[in-house]
């Protein structure tokens, strides 16, 4: 059973280098079961989705990306859902926005000709974020009245890093200093209503190291501070767990040598020494991880763990990670 049955908008953030894009992609796959339709959005112009899923760079248009996990709600095999992808580009979003809400017609094109669009999307403070979040809002709020557009059961946003997330989502505040009244202001307010509702969850990705864990704690406090709903913490890149650190750190040389010989390996002292050394290092790192894990647990939000995959993350690995998230109830 999912921990987030009411959530339609999953915002995934995290410190740089923690793998938030990987987690966002895996979450989208995990949510796309039983014929559900999920939209995976990216906003930072990196084309990370295209790279992860090994497809051509995405245009500013929703397109079918892949099928999700072939599972039913109870985890038994079932019909997969579909993941769509959208690369949100601020300039295109602004033109679309103006066309949709203001019917500016020729004036809209004049804006482009006079460089207003370029100005608004690259320089004007806050506007860029409002446009990006505005498009996400539109995808979440879509209903049967929007003819021809796909309705989604869930939207996953690969959001900016933890340091920028509050600024990014807290759009009405960003604009407050500039537009105190007027149509943009009221639209930002409507968007905030969704972002602050139980239909949104801001998930934070971390790794079990001091700085990312600290930043996650700070991030949670900041997100709560502006009344945005904190979701779960995904602990990524966790070292293999099956070997008990106590035993790994205090393995017996003779026993290891005997096991190696029995398994047909040349049990020379150098190999035994290497293995014991690796065991001690593993124990040391696991102990450090454990102390960070205790701090993550103190955060008092649901946590999910994903393993470090020695071969790196490829398309197959994304499905593997999606299954892990599903097993642990994130989707």
């Amino acid at each position: 059973m999912s921990d987030w049955p009411r959530v339609r908008l999953h915002v995934v953030t995290g410190k740089g280098g923690t793998g938030k894009s990987t987690v966002a992609a895996a979450l989208a796959l995990a949510l796309a079961t039983e014929g559900k339709r999920v939209l995976l959005c990216e906003v930072e112009g990196r084309q990370g989705i295209a790279r992860m899923f090994d497809v051509d760079p995405l245009p500013y248009a929703e397109q079918r990306l892949t099928t999700g996990l072939p599972l039913k709600g109870d985890g038994r095999p079932g019909r997969p859902g579909v993941v769509h992808a959208l690369h949100i580009d601020p300039e295109a979003a602004l033109l679309e926005y103006l066309a949709m809400y203001y019917r500016l017609g020729r004036a809209g094109r004049a804006l482009d000709r006079f460089g207003v669009i370029e100005f608004a999307t690259t320089i004007a403070p806050g506007v860029r974020d409002v446009l990006l979040t505005g498009k996400v809002y539109e995808a979440v709020q879509r209903n049967s009245r929007n003819k021809g557009a796909v309705e989604y059961d869930a939207v996953v946003l690969d959001a900016p890093p933890t340091g920028r997330i509050v600024q990014f989502l807290n759009v009405s505040n960003e604009l407050a200093g500039l537009a105190k009244v007027g149509p943009i202001k009221s639209q930002a307010d409507t968007m905030m209503t969704l972002f602050r509702s139980p239909r949104t969850a801001v998930h934070l990705v971390t790794v079990l190291e001091e700085m990312p864990v600290q930043e996650t704690a700070d991030g949670i406090a900041e997100v709560r501070d502006v009344d945005l709903p904190v979701g779960g913490v995904v602990v990524n890149l966790v070292r293999p767990q099956e070997l008990d650190p106590e035993r790994a750190g205090r393995a017996d040389a003779e026993e290891v040598a005997a096991d190696l010989s029995a398994a047909g390996l040349d049990a020379d002292p150098a190999l035994v020494g290497t293995l014991l050394e690796e065991g001690r290092e593993h124990a040391e790192r696991r102990a450090l991880e454990q102390s960070q894990r205790a701090l993550v647990e103190e955060l008092d939000v649901p946590t999910y763990e994903l393993p470090r995959l020695p071969q790196g993350v490829d398309l197959g690995a994304l499905y593997e990670l999606a299954e892990r998230l599903r097993e642990q109830g994130m989707a």
Partner: peptide, 14 residues
């Protein structure tokens, strides 16, 4: 434990 250590070694090599 030895099997676990070998697995660690393999992961690290990879």
């Amino acid at each position: 434990t030895t099997a676990g250590l070998l697995r660690l070694h393999a992961d690290r090599r990879r």
